[in-house]
Amino acid sequence: MDLNAFFAMIFEWGGMAFRGSFSNELYAEGLYLTVGLISSIVSLFLVLLFYFIINRPSFSRWQHWAIMLFINFIINFVVGFFVPQNVFNSLGNDFEIMEYISFGLIASLTTTVFFVIWTYCFKWWKGNAKGTPKLFFGKF
């Protein structure tokens, strides 16, 4: 499976978020790979920013982590909205604005999961936000 197909599966939520011709065009133009890589890197960057670059006691609680999560959501909405729109406009493909908004939201929600996954990769490391957040049980 190539990376485009891999990200397509993720961003289509295993078929639950498949949006017909819009999704087919995304796949055909390799945009799942583009959006997927950008989203992953943005999420990773924001997580690293929170845990290791900002790394301040005064910005280390779960509320601060939630702010970073929200920023991640917004950035990836923008990415999910504008990257396909720019490409499809240049190719002359016309889609309803709602298609772009829907995909922006799907990308945001998907990368929220990316953000959580990156969080659980790094929250155990040395730093002022070590252990933040505890979303599930005990130390998790």
Binding site: N55, R56, P57, S58, K126, G127, N128, K130
Partner: peptide, 18 residues
């Protein structure tokens, strides 16, 4: 840069980790 007790806490956090 971190100042006062914020920097203090950072050093305590690092010491705790080590």
């Amino acid at each position: 840069k971190q100042k006062n007790f914020e920097l203090f806490v950072t050093h305590l956090n690092n010491a705790s980790h080590k």
